[in-house]
């Protein structure tokens, strides 16, 4: 199985290559990619140099252009596709139908991957992307258990890629409107979930409160671990009590699931975290490279041992062992 690793900066890209990535995914410094955060991402020149560096080390670069094109500004997404192809990207990771259509017509030889943002979670949806646009790989949403993934692999004429470590969405990837509701900006359209410009932290009576777009979404006592300031990880008061409703601050750690994912026929394993620093990239990539090497020798890991890197310093196997539907 290939190890697909994130890079938010050229330094992170080099760190991922040196740590043992098979492929790196990254994006441009604009709203065409779903990690459009301050100080992050690649200029056109940085991408060209990054791809050249990766290729010298036998590593592929996949360019995420995975937001949904805004009406009246499609040229921004077209330019991103053209420039990534010209820079020598090994694949483009796309979600938007119009962008997929443009890329498949304009660059028929360019390998296309379907982003997790497309939410393609069944063989029929995947078949559509393959037949309509020649998609070669689909990044599966984090809603599926291993049995469902095995079924999809069996019934699809397309490679599959699944997340194995990092932040979790609330299983509505590409369709989540929580950030839009609070701030008017979303990962789907603007590339920012809970944009930093709309986040604030305030201290009162020894507690830190986080607000998003003016809404108080969480409050931490001195002894509590923190998570990202997103609505999905906010705490809510309900008639049945107060607490986390959508998701607790935890990170996916599917190291223990790797043998099952391999047996299911998964092609590639993806690490989340383009917004993270190069310390995270180096440590997580190295850890999963070691686990994969061990797997080849018949060894299995109980976890990636990356507690310090995890949101809330807690790991979960997420939906991979889910028994409900």
């Amino acid at each position: 199985m290939e190890l697909i690793c994130p890079a938010g900066t050229p330094a992170s890209l080099e760190a991922a290559v040196e740590a043992g990535a098979d492929a790196i995914y990254c994006g441009f410094r604009d709203e065409t990619n779903a990690r459009n955060f301050p100080g992050l991402n690649f200029s056109r020149e940085e991408l060209r140099k990054g791809i050249a560096f990766a290729h010298r080390h036998g590593v592929k670069v996949l360019v995420a252009i995975n937001t949904f094109a805004r009406a009246g500004s499609f040229e921004l997404w077209q330019a991103a596709v053209d420039d990534a192809a010209a820079a020598g990207a090994d694949a483009l990771i796309l979600a938007d139908l119009a962008t997929l259509d443009y890329a498949s017509r304009r660059h028929p030889d360019q390998r296309l991957h379907v982003s997790v943002q497309a939410g393609a979670a069944n063989p029929d949806a995947i078949r559509f992307y393959v037949e309509a646009f020649g998609a070669r790989r689909v990044v599966l949403p984090r809603v599926l258990n291993v049995m469902e993934i095995a079924t999809i692999v069996r019934e699809s004429d397309c490679e599959t890629e699944v997340f194995v470590f990092g932040g979790l969405c609330v299983m509505e990837e590409g369709r989540c409107s929580l950030s839009s509701y609070a701030t008017g900006k979303s990962p789907n359209m603007n590339g920012v979930c809970s944009p930093a410009s709309d986040v604030a932290y305030t201290e009162r009576d020894g507690r830190i409160s986080s607000t998003l777009g003016g809404f108080t979404i969480n409050s931490f006592g001195k002894n509590e671990l923190a998570g990202y300031p997103t609505l999905c990880k906010g705490r809510f008061a309900t008639p049945k009590g107060s607490g986390y409703i959508f998701e607790e601050p935890v990170s996916l750690d599917a190291a223990v699931m790797l043998p099952a994912l391999r047996d299911a026929g998964v092609t590639a394993l993806k690490i989340e975290g383009r917004q993270r620093g190069r310390a995270y990239i180096a440590e997580v990539v190295r850890s999963f490279r070691d686990i994969l090497s061990g797997l080849d020798k018949g060894q299995t890991a109980s976890s990636a041992g990356l507690a310090a890197m995890a949101e809330g310093q807690t790991g979960t196997v997420g939906a991979y062992r889910k028994s409900w539907r």
Partner: peptide, 15 residues
Amino acid sequence: MAEGTFDGDALFFSR
């Protein structure tokens, strides 16, 4: 964090 040996988000999560 400045040297790249600690990850800023990880330090944030741990408070």
